[in-house]
Simulated scan of single mutants.
Amino acid sequence: MKGLLVYVFLLSIGFAKPEGQVVFENSCLRCHQPDSKKPLSYLQKKYKGKAQEVVELAKRCPWGRGLSDLEIELVSRWIAGD
């Protein structure tokens, strides 16, 4: 039984979403829908490898200003692919 619990736990870790993605989906997706001017696909393409630029962008965004520094860092790294 204990082995089964460990197996289920390890399996669930494998399917967990990255933290930056979770924050983005809960805080940023309201404005960055696929049919918006700046959807996620646009952000990921434009800011690939540029996490610091995403940080600056998030601090200017009305919804981004409500995020903590850690949340902004997680989202920025996730969007930049870092």
Rank of each mutant, 00 (worst) to 15 (best):
V6T: 13
C31S: 08
G3L: 15
G64L: 02
Q33Y: 11
K46I: 15
N26Y: 03
L4V: 15
I72L: 00
L43D: 08
V22T: 15
E25D: 15
L5I: 12
L40R: 00
Q52S: 14
F15L: 12
R30Y: 10
K38G: 10
L57K: 12
K46T: 15
L29D: 03
V6F: 13
V55D: 08
I13D: 04
P39H: 07
E71Y: 00
V8P: 00
C31D: 06
V23P: 00
L29I: 09
E73G: 01
E25Q: 09
W78P: 05
L29S: 10
I13V: 15
V75K: 03
E71H: 05
I79N: 03
L10G: 14
G20T: 01
L5H: 07
W78A: 01
E53I: 12
R77A: 02
L4W: 11
G14M: 10
R30H: 10
K48D: 13
A16R: 01
L29Y: 02
W78L: 02
D35M: 13
L70A: 13
G81E: 06
G64V: 04
M1Y: 08
E71V: 01
F24I: 03
D35E: 11
I13Y: 07
V55I: 15
D69N: 06
G81D: 07
S41P: 00
I79F: 02
G20Q: 05
D82S: 06
L70K: 09
V23H: 00
E73R: 04
V54R: 01
G3N: 15
L40F: 05
E53A: 14
K48G: 10
K37Y: 11
S68I: 00
G81N: 08
V8Q: 04
S68D: 02
K37I: 09
Y7R: 13
C31L: 07
G3S: 15
K17G: 03
P18I: 01
E71N: 02
D82V: 09
Q44I: 11
